[in-house]
Nucleic acid binder design. Structure first.
Lengths: 324, 324
DNA sequence: TGACCGAACTAATACGCATTATCAGCGGAA
DNA sequence: TTCCGCTGATAATGCGTATTAGTTCGGTCA
């Protein structure tokens, strides 16, 4: 339409007509005119084939991205991810095709995986398969995990929440209120976040010089034995906290007068409970933002960034001095 | 690695070694073995270049996909879209790169648009630029709009909410309760959804043989004139309903004893208001699902499907008989 | 013995672009 | 007239795949 070669169009389109390569202003204008008229846009697939990049960031989540059930765990992360992607001029590719196998969680790699269509990838999920991580590493696919991850055949780039100091601070606060016997309820393993919370608890009670026990479940709390004189419970997850409060109430115990409860999980919107737990705020939106920023950085300069963001303490109404 | 040509790998990979083309079982197995060992996956970009399809569906929204503000208007749609995309084995490409220009809304097309990377596209938003729609049509890009859209240089494929019957039913219900003077508050234009709601109202009052007025804002409601004896108000949006309730309360009017209010907008989770408005439920999740189904259908068989899904009436507590 | 055939692969090509090397044309200097 | 250098453009190539049109080779049949 402009009477020029494909090369010339490409040069004009990519603004290379000003530097090294020379295209006369008249020709350039003629090409631009046609582009304007037709609204021609280069095929992104062909472009990607040549340029090796897309400005597309993949987003992989281990459960559905948009959870139908109210507990929208991922939502705040995604808000941050989208904000930052928009600023960076990137599109987001959600790997929704990764079907959930029978009883299994989603896996990143499959025969149909479109992961290589993206320049890089943001990983989201409480836990992530070690194998997936190590394969990402060995294949050299740029990615950033939201949430700290242990090494998987090499250091994993991540932006996580800094649980240990937050939990330690809460233990300190409880100790300052007079609590001397504390319990951590939860597995303390599995996800890195759980291990970090338990570690913070363990370190915290040691620092404060108080007694701390680790219980697997809420039911152990009210039996006889060492746990029976606990005055404050640190619940691994918000749900654990809610369960403990429920059991306590059923036993006629008042929270926090008879038993203080600190929730270490994400205080999502009040869904399963409307209790205003003491605990901390996981900076999920910021983590999402930062993950995208770090991914951009990895794409441009490489490296293996690892960052932990501070959690802001939440006063709440479930932590009070123990009964004298 | 398998000692065969690229062609052979391609044939084996795509399972064409069984039919027309012949590859010996031994060779086939050898290739499969290498694929298994290396985890080789064909480059999606190169594949797309040849095959003209991707199994990637684009999702375009006119505001941020993940709204930071509570009123997550899009969320239920996206739940449905994701569910269906997962079933169809498709990934979702969110066009987050479409920057919001100064004071403008997002536009679909730009010099950088990656829209052609997707096989087709789902459109989401209260209103969508006519120009964008007509360009989608003229360029022959397969798409389905969530929400009814007027023609834009041709019929637009959509799955919408069927407002007119729902509004008519609500008018009937109000009339049955004894209301004789009704008002519609809202623009009644701009978005197709608004026009549909007003149309339903107008038809409804005509059918019921009652009086109906159309007011632009809540403030007109309480002045003198024809609107002063209105006993039930149909609010175009939930926010309008909340505003009306607020003003009514300030004037010492009881809702619904002195004034009934029907909200025609999406009853999202109680955010700005905790009033349980009478109205209807927009089947947003179903609309999202159906949009993806229709897009798949368009991609396979073409056509211009147009569907309206019924809205389920919501009893609520703001519609009662007028004072005698 | 040579034409013929089918089985099992592969060379070549197209997809749409970015990029590199090359080329035509032209004015000026030797 | 010849040669040189510069301008302005293009032919050719590669990216990684799917597909089509061969090609090779060992046997069959007349």
């Amino acid at each position: 339409m402009a009477g020029v070669s494909q090369t010339t169009v490409s040069l004009v389109l990519n603004g290379r007509a000003e530097g090294e390569v020379r295209i006369s202003p008249e020709t350039r204008e003629r090409v631009l005119q046609v582009i304007r008229e037709t609204g021609y846009v280069a095929d992104p697939a062909a472009r990607r084939l040549v340029e090796r990049r897309n400005r597309i960031y993949g987003v992989f989540t281990y459960e559905a991205v948009f959870p139908a059930e109210s507990a929208d765990f991922y939502h705040p992360f995604l808000v941050g991810i989208e904000e930052c992607a928009e600023e960076a001029g990137c599109d987001l590719l959600l790997f929704t095709s990764a079907k959930v196998e029978q009883g299994e969680r989603r896996r990143i790699f499959s025969a149909e995986s479109r992961i290589r269509l993206a320049d890089g990838c943001v990983l989201l999920g409480r836990t992530i398969h070690r194998d997936d991580l190590s394969r990402l590493l060995s294949e050299g696919i740029p990615f950033v995990s939201v949430g700290r991850r242990d090494d998987a055949g090499g250091p994993v780039p991540y932006v996580g929440a800094d649980y240990p100091p937050a939990v330690r601070a809460l233990v300190r606060r409880a100790a300052a209120l007079g609590h001397r016997r504390m319990a951590y309820v939860g597995s303390g393993q599995g996800a890195e976040s759980y291990a970090d919370r338990l570690r913070g608890f363990t370190e915290g009670v040691a620092e404060a010089g108080v007694e701390g026990v680790h219980l697997a479940g809420a039911d152990e709390l009210f039996g006889s034995g060492p746990a029976s004189e606990v005055t404050v419970v640190f619940a691994e997850e918000l749900a654990d906290g809610a369960a403990i409060a429920e059991v306590a109430r059923a036993r006629g115990l008042d929270v926090p007068r008879d038993l203080s409860i600190v929730a270490l999980g994400a205080p999502t919107r009040p869904v399963s409970t409307d209790i205003d737990f003491a605990g901390f705020r996981i900076p999920r939106r910021e983590m999402g933002r930062r993950a995208v920023e770090l991914l951009t950085q990895v794409l441009e300069h490489g490296g293996t960034p690892q960052e932990l963001l501070a959690c802001e303490l939440v006063e709440g109404s479930t932590l009070a001095p123990p009964r004298p």
